[in-house]
């Protein structure tokens, strides 16, 4: 009786596993289809009469060449490479410093016993509840006062800290065993030293997670640069993509090629940091 029951169960399990697999694959197809479609359109020759196909009938890289040189019609010295470089610069200058700034604050809020700590933490959380559009106009006026309209610093500095980052780092640092820190305290280390030489190295996975979130966010940001940047030489990729959409003519192939170029770097960053990304989420968001 027992063996029979067991066999029946494995049989059911196999069917279930198969079913699960089919569903997973179907889901994966839905997830990649639009991305593949973008790729396929970017490889299809452009014409007035377009038919959208999942698999291109004729492959060409013409759209990529066109997309790269496209911005030259607006200014001789500008190619898609200019925007690419700007995007890399802005993303790197937001992501790097922001990691330090957020983790510093997260560490102090998690570990140092200072007056007003709770209030400060709730203030950081409150920043997450403010839709950007709510503050866009006053922020525009603040940045104008600083004379940062149409500059790189205007695109960068306002985003060097984030409530989400502070929160993630605080949650992580809270979960680090106290003993590690106590030993250093006995040795008379300053908070800064403890943060820099003990805590930050431990936070590597959270740094990985936040790198991806920050990079992703700053790479894709659209509305704010749109509002403050006019100089074509300072534009980032998402802004540049609007140039491909004319009033009457949108060159879909070129646009899709541009979008593909704009998507690849961030996907590469994700693939490179994938493992520590997952670990960091365990430590930052879940434990704590």
């Amino acid at each position: 009786m027992t063996p029979k029951l067991k066999k029946k169960r494995t049989c059911r399990e196999i069917v279930l596993a198969g079913l699960k697999y089919i569903l997973l694959v179907a889901g994966a197809i839905v997830m990649v289809a639009p991305v593949l479609w973008m790729l396929s359109t970017s490889l299809t020759p452009d014409s007035v009469i377009i038919s959208y196909q999942l698999i291109p009938s004729k492959i060409t890289f013409e759209n990529y060449v066109r997309a790269w040189d496209f911005p030259r019609v607006f200014s001789d010295s500008v190619t898609l490479g200019t925007f690419f470089f700007n995007s890399v610069l802005v993303s790197a200058l937001i992501t790097g410093p922001a990691l330090i700034i957020d983790s510093l604050a997260g560490y102090v809020l998690a570990r140092r016993d200072i007056p007003g700590k709770n209030l400060l933490f709730y203030l950081a959380l409150a920043t997450m509840m403010i839709p950007f559009y709510v503050i866009a106009v006053p922020l525009f006026l603040v940045v104008r006062k600083l004379r940062w309209l149409d500059t790189f610093q205007g695109m960068i500095v306002p985003f060097l800290s984030s409530g989400f980052g502070v929160f993630m780092f605080k949650q992580f640092f809270q979960s680090v065993p106290k003993e590690l820190e106590d030993a250093a305290l006995v040795d008379g280390c300053s908070p800064w030293r403890i943060y820099w030489s003990i805590m930050l190295p431990l936070a590597k996975p959270v740094v990985g997670t936040m790198t991806i979130f920050k990079a992703m966010w700053s790479w894709n940001q659209f509305f704010w640069p749109l509002l403050i940047i006019n100089n074509i030489k300072l534009k980032t990729l998402p802004l540049a993509l609007t140039m491909f959409r004319g009033l009457n003519v949108t060159e879909w192939g070129t646009l899709c090629a541009g979008m593909t170029i704009a998507t690849i770097p961030i996907v590469v960053v994700y693939l490179l940091m994938q493992d520590s990304f997952q670990k960091g989420i365990v430590m930052g968001a879940v434990k704590g």
Binding site: A105, Y107, V108, L120, L123, A124, V157, P158, L160, S161
Partner: peptide, 9 residues
Amino acid sequence: MLAPAYVIF
């Protein structure tokens, strides 16, 4: 150490 983050906020 908190200052950079909160000055920006």
